[in-house]
C-alpha cells in the first residue's frame, strides 16, 4: 500500500554562465507510489506557486527508453537501483525523513546547461563519426539475403539497447565514454552488414571520443553498474579488439 513520506532535498541549482550551488527544499506529503520525477513535479509546483523558479530537469518518455532523464541521486547515476532509469525509480525506495542529494551528471564533456540539465551532445558527435552503416535509402538488397546467426543477432541487440543517457560517463571515475562508444562499435562489428566500414568506424569514433574530452578507460567497470540497460563491459573488450585489429591492418 502506498503511504505519504516527507523528504529533504538538496538540489543543485545553476543558471547559464553562473556558478552553481546546492539549495535545500522540503518535499512534504510525497506518495510512495510516485516516481522520482513525479516527486520533482510536486516540488516544482510548490516552487512555482510560491514565486520561485522550478528545478529544471530533463525528461520525456518516463518509461525508461528515451534516455533524457538522469541525475546523480545520493551520488549514484539514476539513483540506487540497477537497470533502472531515474523516471522508473519510485519513491517507495526512500525512507520518511530522508535527505536526498540531487546533482547533475558530472563530466567535463557534459557541461551543465541549467540546474540538473547537462549538454550530452558530445555523444551524438561520436555517433556521427561512424555509429551507423552507410546505406542510402534504396540501396538495400532483399532483407533475407544474408542470414545472421541468431546468437550474433542477440548479442548485437544486447549492445544496441543503449539509450544514450550518459550515465556511464557520469559514473566513470575518468569521465570516459568507452561503454557508450563500445556498444555502438560492437553492434556493427557483430553483424555482417557492419563489416565493410569496420576499421574506419572504430578509428574515427575513438578519435572523436578522445577529441571531445572524454577520459581514458581504466577498466574499473563503474559504467556497467550505472548502465540502466545493463550494457556489459564485454563491449569494451570488443572495442579494444576492433581497435587493435583496425590499426594492425593499417587500413585507410
Amino acid at each position: 500500500m502506498s503511504k505519504k513520506i516527507s523528504l529533504t532535498l538538496k538540489v543543485w541549482r545553476q543558471n547559464r554562465g553562473e556558478e552553481g550551488r546546492f539549495e535545500t527544499y522540503q518535499a512534504g506529503n510525497i506518495d510512495t507510489d510516485a516516481s522520482f520525477l513525479e516527486m520533482l513535479d510536486v516540488v516544482n509546483d510548490e516552487l512555482t506557486l510560491s514565486g520561485k523558479e522550478p528545478i529544471a530537469f530533463e525528461h520525456d518518455c518516463r518509461e525508461g527508453i528515451c534516455g533524457c532523464c538522469g541525475s546523480l541521486v545520493n551520488g549514484k547515476t539514476h539513483g540506487s537501483h540497477e537497470r533502472t532509469t531515474l523516471c522508473q525509480l519510485h519513491m517507495r525506495h526512500f525512507k520518511d525523513g530522508e535527505m536526498i542529494v540531487i546533482e547533475p551528471f558530472r563530466a567535463t564533456a557534459f557541461p551543465v546547461i541549467k540546474d540538473l540539465i547537462v549538454d550530452r551532445s558530445a555523444l551524438d558527435r561520436i555517433i556521427a563519426e561512424g555509429g551507423y552503416i552507410s546505406v542510402k535509402t534504396g540501396n538495400a538488397p532483399e532483407a533475407s539475403t544474408t542470414p545472421v546467426k541468431k546468437a550474433l543477432a542477440e548479442a548485437a541487440m544486447d549492445a544496441a539497447e543503449c539509450i544514450g543517457c550518459g550515465a556511464c560517463v557520469a559514473a566513470c571515475p575518468n569521465g570516459a565514454a568507452m561503454l557508450f562508444t563500445a556498444a555502438k562499435v560492437n553492434q556493427y562489428a557483430l553483424l555482417p552488414q557492419g563489416h565493410p566500414e569496420r576499421a574506419q568506424r572504430v578509428k574515427n569514433m575513438v578519435a572523436k571520443m578522445d577529441e571531445l574530452g572524454f577520459g581514458n578507460c581504466s577498466n574499473e567497470y563503474e559504467c556497467a553498474v550505472a548502465c540502466p540497460k545493463g550494457i556489459d563491459v564485454k563491449n569494451i573488450a570488443a572495442l579494444n579488439r576492433e581497435f587493435i585489429k583496425a590499426n594492425l591492418k593499417c587500413e585507410k
Binding site: 543543485w12 546523480l72 551520488g75 558530472r106 563530466a107 564533456a109 575518468n174 577520459g215 574499473e220
Partner: peptide, 23 residues
C-alpha cells in the same frame, strides 16, 4: 587526462564496484 575529463561531483559516491587497487 582522466583528472581533466572527470568533473568532480559534490555528493558522495557510493558504488562499490571500483576496487581499492584500481583507485
Amino acid at each position: 587526462e582522466n583528472r581533466t575529463a572527470h568533473d568532480k561531483r559534490l555528493s558522495q559516491k557510493s558504488t562499490k564496484e571500483r576496487s581499492l587497487a584500481a583507485r
